[in-house]
Design a protein around this nucleic acid. Sequence first.
DNA 1: ATATTATTCAACTATATGGTTGAATGTAGT
DNA 2: ACTACATTCAACCATATAGTTGAATAATAT
Lengths: 112, 112
Amino acid sequence: MQLTISRNSSLDAIFSSLADETRRDILNRVSKKQLSVGEIAKHYKLTFAAISKHLKVLEKASLIIKQRRGKEQIIRISPDALAMANKYLETYEQHWENRLNNLDKLLTGKKS
Amino acid sequence: MQLTISRNSSLDAIFSSLADETRRDILNRVSKKQLSVGEIAKHYKLTFAAISKHLKVLEKASLIIKQRRGKEQIIRISPDALAMANKYLETYEQHWENRLNNLDKLLTGKKS
DNA sequence: ATATTATTCAACTATATGGTTGAATGTAGT
DNA sequence: ACTACATTCAACCATATAGTTGAATAATAT
């Protein structure tokens, strides 16, 4: 089960999306409750257009799903991309835990 | 145990570091074995200086640790920042699992 | 059809990023 | 002190990103 890293533009999109505080904050909001673009925008001092752009970035990374409902666009979180990012990071955590465990064993072994 | 998202420049640095394929690849390499800058650089068609810059980005995000050994600088992975990113993403995964579970319960309940 | 509300697009600006080349620094060996 | 090797710095260029403003589109209500 090897993790292929080469040329993974999804990860590029996901991580660069998450590299912005406003976008992380938006993600946090919509993870709790689906919201229209306007409802999201009113929490920030940015212009409506700026928020719209941020949403576009998040959508492109498949972190959110946009769906029209009447005049409004309803935004909700999409789990897939986050799961992907999570999977990616877990690999390293796992690796590190293994190294620490081995070190621990080594030290414990030497002591007795 | 609330996750504070506001103004978290560490997360900015971590995620924007991870948003680049070369840097993810470097991280992958040094997670397996500590390497000098030169040993890392020779695997890419980029210039030495470019790799040096990427390493600087990773170091600033606390994703790697740089340590001089003789003429060389030895690079190894640092677990802390990755753990932080992981923690961040887990929050959302957890949230989503909860929603799916609830949906499942709801559907199961209706069926009987 | 017109107006109102919600959102996006286009054009533009400023700054950040990723790359290059060539000079500069740090360390070790002679 | 001189040379060689490993790495970084400085200056520069091209492209991407985050923001703005004002016009354009989309859906609903009158």
